[in-house]
């Protein structure tokens, strides 16, 4: 098979099947990312508030939200009066 530079992924696609786990992981992340970003479009939210709306364990919300902060989709907002929980907002 002739391999064109810049399109070598097609070569490996022919030789190797992408695992179902990797496909499911991508699908799940895309869903969670879309939901979190849609919710944050409406207002700034804390992890507690996001957890209630997403119906997910809090530690998973922390993981996905912090990953979205890391990759520049979300930014940290203000901390509450008790200096315990931050709110998070969309990065503009």
């Amino acid at each position: 098979m002739e391999v064109e530079k810049g399109k070598t992924f097609k070569y490996l696609r022919e030789k190797r099947e992408v695992s179902q786990e990797a496909k499911d992981n991508l699908k799940r992340f895309n869903q969670i990312k879309k939901t979190i970003l849609d919710l944050l479009k409406e207002s700034d939210l804390t992890i507690e508030q996001l957890t209630q709306k997403l119906n997910m364990p809090k530690n998973e919300v922390v993981f996905y939200l912090m990953s979205l902060v890391k990759f520049g989709y979300v930014q940290t907002g203000a901390i509450d009066e008790m200096d315990e929980y931050f709110s998070y907002k969309l990065k503009k």
Binding site: E48, K58, N59, V62, K70, I79, E84, Y85
Partner: peptide, 16 residues
Amino acid sequence: RPFNTILRPGDGKVPC
């Protein structure tokens, strides 16, 4: 660091 400050990974609370 992974977070903006020190946080609990269980719920994002700043630990005291």
